[in-house]
Each structure stands twice: as structure tokens, then as C-alpha cells.
Amino acid sequence: MSNPNRSQLIDDISTALSSFNETIRPDGVGVRAFSLEQDDELGLVAKVIYVIDDIARAEDMNFIDRYCGQSGEILKDYVEFVFCRFRSEAEYHSDSSDSPWGLSLIELQHAA
């Protein structure tokens, strides 16, 4: 990260999401990592990875809307749009280890 503005942005987003995690951890859900990408049409977008205790909960659109909406609200001053992915602990580890996708992720410190 040679761009100081990008470094600061990553720090700010990490802090905001870590603080958010404190409020949602009792629900068995937490943001584990995120990535930043420039979208040609939307501008800067964040991809936020949630890890949840029971992955079946991610098949409920109310659940997805609630948490994806909350992270969108929290990051609205930093990015234009937020995309969300929901993973179980095992899926997150198998998806992110040694994969190009995993290497693009910025993991939160002290994430549950």
C-alpha cells in the first residue's frame, strides 16, 4: 500500500467495521474481512465478508438485508457501494487460504 490515502482509507474502514463488530457479535455474526475495488460505473466499492455461526441464516433475505444494509450505512462516507458475502467459519478458511481471492482480502484485527 504505497498510496497514503488508500492506507488511511483502509485504516478508517477497518476501525469502523471493528466497532460495528462489537455490536453484532452477540448475534453470532461478524465482519471478518473486506476488499476495496474500483468499479467503472459505481466508483469505489467495498466487498465485506461476514462470518456467521449458522450459514443457513444467510438463506434468509431479511438477515442479508439487515446486515448488508448496516455495513452499507457504516461505510457510506468511505465508499460508493458495499457488496456482501456470507460464509461459515469453515467456508471462510477454505475459500481464503492460498487463493487469489483470499490474498485480496484485508482481514480485521481481533475479528471474532
Binding site: 444467510a58 438463506e59 456470507f86 475459500d95 481471492w101
Partner: peptide
């Protein structure tokens, strides 16, 4: 091809399309 999808991603896509 580097993105890894899980079944719930397809379930989410389907729910969004239906809605």
C-alpha cells in the same frame, strides 16, 4: 474464476431475482 461461490450465494441471487 478466482472467486469462490457457495450455495447460499446462489440462493441469495435467486431470492433477489424473485423479489
Amino acid at each position: 474464476i478466482t472467486t469462490i461461490f457457495q450455495k447460499q450465494d446462489a440462493v441469495e441471487a435467486l431470492s433477489r431475482a424473485k423479489r
